[in-house]
Amino acid sequence: MKALRAFWFRPEMRRKMKFQREADPEWAQQVAQRPGCEGLFSCLQCGTCSGTCPLSIYMDFAPRRIIGLVREGFREDALGCQTIWLCASCYACAVHCPRQIRITDVMYSLKREALQYKLYPRRFPIPVLAQEFYGIVSDRGRSSEFWLVLRMALHSNPLQLLTLIGTGWRLFRTGRLSLHKEQIEHVKELQAELAGRRGT
């Protein structure tokens, strides 16, 4: 009876099965041709990447499994996961990989695609930060920490601002929090340079 209830009230269950029609092997081939993503198919699945990754313990799929998902063409799992956003770009996986796969660059490529097709996990603050950062730098040529954090918090979790007050005050007191909005002189030229060259 107890076991039955435990089964019944289980909040979420995930099917661990894949039909081959869910796979998109062509997409896998495409990814492998992007700069920085070569060598995907030489992966040994040895797990060195996950083992060296400081964040794999928090990831929904460890880096090895991301490579596996991409290689098999399970696009939505690879693009919809938290893993790619948790990657802090420390490049430990890339320099340790016995096949010299540049896993960090693969992660970047997946992040870009996830944003482009809006497949990233909603209310996850990291993609929000990236987009806010992108906005500020594209507008002004430089980032300003205060404004960046403010905008990120407003767009993800305004309550978070309360928790940031302490840290903010400590930085302000030591002269490390500038309210100045940094901007470069030739911001128009920069924008011209960037204009029309989007592409992920």
Binding site: S89, A130, R142, S143, E185, L194, G199
Partner: peptide
């Protein structure tokens, strides 16, 4: 360096690779 701009850091690379490279290249 006069009129330097942001390198793009890790965030820019998540959005657009081309533009991230252009920022550093500038």
């Amino acid at each position: 360096l006069r009129d330097w701009n942001c390198c793009g850091a890790t965030s820019y690379m998540c959005i657009d690779e081309n533009l991230a490279f252009l920022l550093s290249a500038r």
